[in-house]
Structures are given as structure tokens and as C-alpha cells.
């Protein structure tokens, strides 16, 4: 009897894992705040990036402020491979990263181990 219950609970947990990690969960795109001259957005680094989907206006110099609150070594660098940026993120310190917005397109960023990802859309 106990074993049957354990089996059912185990399978339910598996189902939950599948739904939680692989199910469709909408991620909202957040636009950077722009004052016409520059645009800025704060990105919180804690178990991933929030927001992790950032929209920038083309042609307006942009600054992304990353603040890492997570002590995981995985997140201690942020890499924009298209821009040649590999910035260390000391814990609890805002790090500004300037992005060249002259070319429209979608760009990925990732943590130093390529486990966490974020998306940058310039349009």
C-alpha cells in the first residue's frame, strides 16, 4: 500500500517537473525606458535574469544595468557574444553595460556557463 502511494506521488512529481520546466510559460518582453537621448533598463540577476526579454529602440544609446543578487558562480559573468562583451558581475553591485543599438535584430545573452539566457531585441 505504502509503495503504491510512493509510486503515485513519484509520478505526480515527474509530471509536475515536466509541466513546470517544459510547459509554455509566457515571458513578458520589457522595453527599456527612454528619454530620447538614452535608454536604460535595470536587470535583476537572481536565479536567471528578470526581465529576460528586453526590447531596445534602434539608434538610441542603451545601457543595461545588471545587478547580481545570486551567489551562484554560474551567473557571475554575463556574456553578449554578438557584442564581444564579457562582464563580471560582482555580487550586489550594479554593472552598466553599454549596447550598440545601431543594428536591429535579436541578440542572445547568457551567463558565463551558457546555462541562463536572455534575449535582446533591437527594433
Amino acid at each position: 500500500m505504502v509503495k503504491v502511494i510512493v509510486l503515485i506521488v513519484g509520478l505526480v512529481i515527474i509530471g509536475f517537473i515536466l509541466w513546470w520546466f517544459f510547459g509554455k510559460h509566457t515571458v513578458n518582453a520589457v522595453s527599456a525606458e527612454s528619454n530620447g537621448q538614452t535608454q536604460q533598463i535595470n536587470i535583476d540577476v537572481n536565479g536567471g535574469y528578470s526581465p529576460e526579454n528586453v526590447v531596445l529602440k534602434k539608434g538610441v544609446p542603451a545601457v543595461l544595468n545588471f545587478t547580481r543578487r545570486d551567489s551562484s558562480t554560474c551567473l557571475d559573468h554575463v556574456v553578449f557574444s554578438d557584442f564581444g562583451i564579457n562582464q563580471t558581475l560582482p555580487k550586489n553591485e550594479a554593472q552598466s553595460i553599454k549596447i550598440d543599438t545601431s543594428k536591429a535584430g535579436e541578440y542572445q545573452w547568457a551567463c558565463g556557463m551558457d546555462m541562463f539566457h536572455g534575449k535582446l531585441t533591437i527594433k
Binding site: 520546466f21 537572481n46 536565479g47 536567471g48 529576460e52 545570486d70 551562484s72 554560474c74 546555462m115
Partner: peptide, 19 residues
């Protein structure tokens, strides 16, 4: 502790990692 904190933070975002 930090592993657990980090794991929880990513869990709430539907992510998972080493931690």
C-alpha cells in the same frame, strides 16, 4: 545555503541549473 537560494530563485522563473 546559497545553492538552495539560487536554485529556488531560478525555480520560480521556470529555470534550473547546477545549483
Amino acid at each position: 545555503g546559497p545553492f538552495i537560494k539560487s536554485a529556488w530563485a531560478s525555480f520560480t522563473k521556470h529555470h534550473s541549473n547546477m545549483d
